[in-house]
Design a protein around this nucleic acid. Structure first.
Lengths: 354, 354
DNA sequence: GTCCGGGTTCGAATCGTTTCGAGGCGTCGC
DNA sequence: GCGACGCCTCGAAACGATTCGAACCCGGAC
């Protein structure tokens, strides 16, 4: 008894047809008599043949049916953030409908201290790659992919020559939010920002550090404030978009002599942390301090408070990324997409105490 | 000018060696003079050749370097649960170190109403598959994979002939927790359970429904209570392991004439929801009602409360799954693993009101 | 001088499928 | 009755790499 799994040739032999005909029976690409197809399929069933081997098919067609999704520096961190997760969800569904599988690839090598990129990025089969969240111009992952000739789509990154980008109106949303606060009468507004890129830390941003800002969403959201004429009294950089980080940053900002009357956090998770910090310090929201976020995710445990935030269409972003991937694979040169955001005022912002 | 990317043959030609020698230069499998290797590598650099095409390599070696991870019915739901995420994180790192990439595959077809499994499961290249969370005996995904001859590892599932399982001591942990409550003096204990399998709903479990329990973790955690001699006054089945669900279930349980003195939730997220429900109803925890969870995840926003829970080693579970995958690929027949859990008493359980 | 052997390199076969052009057979039209 | 046209089927050539055994070259030993 032969042991390796049956191949198309075995099936063809059993059905008494040629290999090419058997192939046709499975792929359906080409004319084939119904009787013949049935015979082949029957033979396949008998032999326990479960469809063409994807490896052989890939080699021949040059396509693997795999889209790599490059996630930030740590899976753990990316996935604790509902924002990434919802985008990924939209992306997986959209690509799934196109028959593309999603391969998770860490953006950095698993072993600490190594320089370069994760070996998977260099060796895994992929038809296209998506840098889902916050690439930079000199991203080693991006360079590696370009060297391999893999088409790339960037989510929320800088525009790079020839690489389509899908983003949201970070800047305009941030501006609207700032206007909302200004209209309420706030003058002393502090910011808890997303990471700047480079080494992660939770600390007040110095002018020196401000020049090292490399991460696009962070940058755009800060610029939006400027557009509304707001100059933050302080900016605290969070090490990651997590509740704990927001809480630490909130303490830094609020546990001082003359605290700001409003805190703008660059993500809802950070804002939630700021709310907790305010609660710990005995500050009422929004009477003593207003707090606003960004993203528009569900935070059921915040009730009865409702966070004022800028909602972005997360699932739609995943879909847009998927569409861009499709266009790229079809050989088109997709336009950059910029998805709309909406200001959603809740109960956590109000006029400052006079 | 030829446009398609250079192949190993091109590189070999440019370096003046045979294809087989060039292959050696890259794979390092076999003796090769340092000078020759350098010459090949130099030629490769000049031609912009970025390493052997994974498709060709896969076909020849019969291995794709891909492990499929089959996630529950919806990505969104799986990933909103920190439990899945942390396990996945451990799994991705462990597999990454072995050079295996993780392909995300939905457990059910993307398009509603279709029967069967996601086409990716049948056509994507994979050396092994991991059913990460809660498969059942008659899981169509499992059957499909077995038909393809793909080795499978199950996380938290039923034991199936010839399929290695990695689980935790659900039953013993649950029993310990129950004893803790009994020792405190509780007699009226209610349960908020994980889904039973089949149609999802948030409702009180009838005796009829109890016979339809298909999902292993749910089952084991209920059995653990029995082991401690606890017969729940009511069991409410949640539609998913989410805070909202726990909150709804909590209302169902606590907003009644004669509420239980303790609520055991089968996950921390559910327990958090129960806490919120208790708060909404003006019940003090643990004075009026004790609440316990399962999993041991971080819930920073619960502070100053600390949830009493059964902690399971989530990252270790991911690693154990990875090790099992490795063993399977090495041709071994891995033993089922059962990871230890620890009762962690917090501030949310105490003696019942007398 | 011949033989032997260690260290490299080469040729050819192979992995399983798709695709393309050629050919066979039956039928329809004139 | 003959030619042409369709519909199917087939054979052979890729796709890009790995691998195995054979061939090779050179120095050292007898």
């Amino acid at each position: 008894m032969g042991h390796s799994r049956p191949t198309l040739a075995d099936v063809a032999g059993a059905a008494g047809v040629s290999v090419s005909t058997a192939s046709l029976a499975f792929s359906g690409a080409g004319p084939i008599a119904a009787a013949t197809r049935d015979r082949v399929l029957a033979a396949a069933g008998e032999l326990g043949y479960s469809g063409p081997n994807p490896l052989g098919r890939s080699l021949r067609s040059g396509r693997s049916g795999i889209a790599a999704v490059v996630i930030g520096d740590q899976l753990r961190r990316s996935f604790r953030d509902p924002v990434s997760v919802q985008v990924l969800d939209g992306l997986v569904s959209t690509l799934g409908q196109m028959g593309l599988g999603v391969l998770l690839v860490p953006g950095m090598p698993a072993t600490e201290g190594t320089t370069g990129v994760d070996p998977l990025l260099e060796t895994a089969p992929m038809d296209v790659a998506v840098l889902i969240w916050g690439s930079r111009e000199d991203d080693p992952a991006l360079l590696s992919l370009q060297r391999r000739g893999v088409p790339v789509v960037i989510g929320e990154g800088p525009s790079v020559e020839g690489v389509p980008v899908v983003g949201i109106q970070d800047r305009r949303g941030s501006e609207e939010l700032a206007r909302h606060l200004v209209d309420l009468g706030h003058e002393r507004i502090a910011v808890v920002s997303l990471p700047f890129g480079g080494p992660r830390r939770c600390a007040v941003v110095s002018p020196q550090r401000m020049t090292e800002l490399r991460w696009t969403p962070t940058k755009h959201r800060l610029e939006g404030l400027q557009d509304a004429g707001v100059v933050p009294t302080v900016v605290v950089e969070a090490a990651a978009s997590l509740v704990e980080e927001g809480q630490a940053a909130g303490r830094l900002l609020l546990d001082v002599e003359d605290p700001p009357t409003a805190v703008v956090a660059q993500s809802d998770l950070l804002a939630a942390g700021v709310l907790l910090a305010a609660r710990d310090l005995g500050l009422r929201v929004p009477q003593d301090v207003s707090v606003a976020g960004f993203d528009g995710i569900d935070l059921p445990w915040l009730a009865p408070d409702v966070l004022t935030t800028v909602a972005q269409p997360l699932a739609a972003k995943g879909e847009a990324l998927g569409q861009t991937v499709a266009a790229l694979l079809a050989g088109e040169q997709p336009e950059p997409a910029l998805l709309p955001v909406t200001l959603r005022t809740g109960t956590t912002t109000g006029p400052p105490r006079t």
